[in-house]
Design a protein around this nucleic acid. Structure first.
Lengths: 202, 202
DNA sequence: CAATTATTTTAATCTGGATTAAAATAATCC
DNA sequence: GGATTATTTTAATCCAGATTAAAATAATTG
């Protein structure tokens, strides 16, 4: 059986397809990208994609699952590595942005969740909410441990997620911009969280 | 001639249509909203919309023009009223969010610019860039006048625009949330801009 | 109120891109 | 290398939703 190698090849192609799709969706918009567009990025014809995916809806669904997974991974890693709330938040920003601009990107903006079929939609929404709550918990912990300014964590979380999720709208792969993003963006987000105490000794 | 009253009525309906469309696009996604959906919000049938607009592309285009105009208006008003950079920025946040959650909203998220036909796309992109530059100039001025922390204005501007533009993704008209948004969100965005000096006397 | 204009509807079309079927090529295995 | 499986292609369908045409209703005007 070639099942090991076969799976690997299949999974590889599928992964490439998802990244190509994310790229197209982010650049051309959802309705603006046909399956032909996605296939073209891979050097294939459109029906070839049906070997990997049941239909376009499922392609979007998988893109969003992937986006959710990478975001989740970034936050979990940050929680593992970090000490206090601010430290975790900052690490999370770095990891997530690294995902977006690095080898594992791009990550699809979840602009078309409503077009997913109900069970897919619910699943993606649940993941999305979980991630938000997860991040809000980090903020709360940070407020308690004194590393973050007191704030409305729901709103602050939404503000930060918006900043991050919007990145693909203006970052289109320019490497120098990518470097800046990685270096400066996390700091910018963190600045809004900084409490007077930590500012004082800066 | 009924031209005065006629125009008024026509314009009123057209305005309602644009707001209905923005609401649908933000809630159901672009591809997820058919002209029937938009018409239904108005209590009409789909072909009625063609009395106001040449086609769906133009409907989106007008939504985006409107979004750009309201954002521009918010910033211009802030510049008129405000004193220093921070003051202007804060006023801009308030005005813009007021537009989104108030009577004049909702404002469409510009997620489908790439699907616009070339001249429309270019026009909307130009307006969008102009607004960004406009806001970046406010940030620069604020840094010079000492009311804002020194920062990369391009990145900071992008971060803030992301936060604002993402709002319709999680705010869906809940009034209590709307109140919170109006009261707290501008502060949250401003906090990230605050310089040590102004923080000190807070 | 008759006439004119504005707005909306009902009933067809029309179409691009998704999808399917069948055949062709490429890879892998014994 | 021949057989089997994996991947892709070419060539048709197919269809939801956009669009158009013609007719009906509502508003306005003199």
């Amino acid at each position: 059986m070639a099942s090991k190698a076969k799976e690997t090849r299949f999974q590889l192609q599928k992964g490439r397809m998802l990244r190509a799709a994310a790229q197209c969706f982010n650049q051309k918009g959802y309705s603006g990208t046909s399956l032909r567009d996605v296939a073209a990025v891979l050097g294939l014809t459109d029906p070839a994609l049906y070997y990997y995916v049941r239909n376009k809806e499922e392609l979007v669904y998988l893109c969003y699952l992937r986006a959710a997974a990478l975001g989740h991974e970034a936050l979990e890693r940050a929680k593992d590595e970090g000490s206090n709330g601010m430290d975790i938040a900052l690490r999370y920003f770095r990891h997530h942005i690294e995902m977006m601009v690095g080898e594992r990107g791009p990550i699809a903006i979840m602009s078309e969740i409503p077009s997913l079929k109900p069970d897919h939609r619910n699943e993606v929404l649940a993941l999305s909410r979980r991630h938000s709550l997860n991040f809000e918990a980090v903020l709360e912990a940070g407020i308690l441990d004194g590393s973050l300014e007191d704030c409305n964590v729901r709103m602050t979380g939404n503000a930060i997620m918006g900043s991050i999720n919007w990145i693909p709208k203006w970052y289109h792969g320019d490497p120098s911009m990518g470097r800046q993003l990685l270096e400066e963006f996390p700091q910018i987000l963190a600045r809004g969280l900084q409490c007077s105490v930590s500012l004082a000794d800066a």
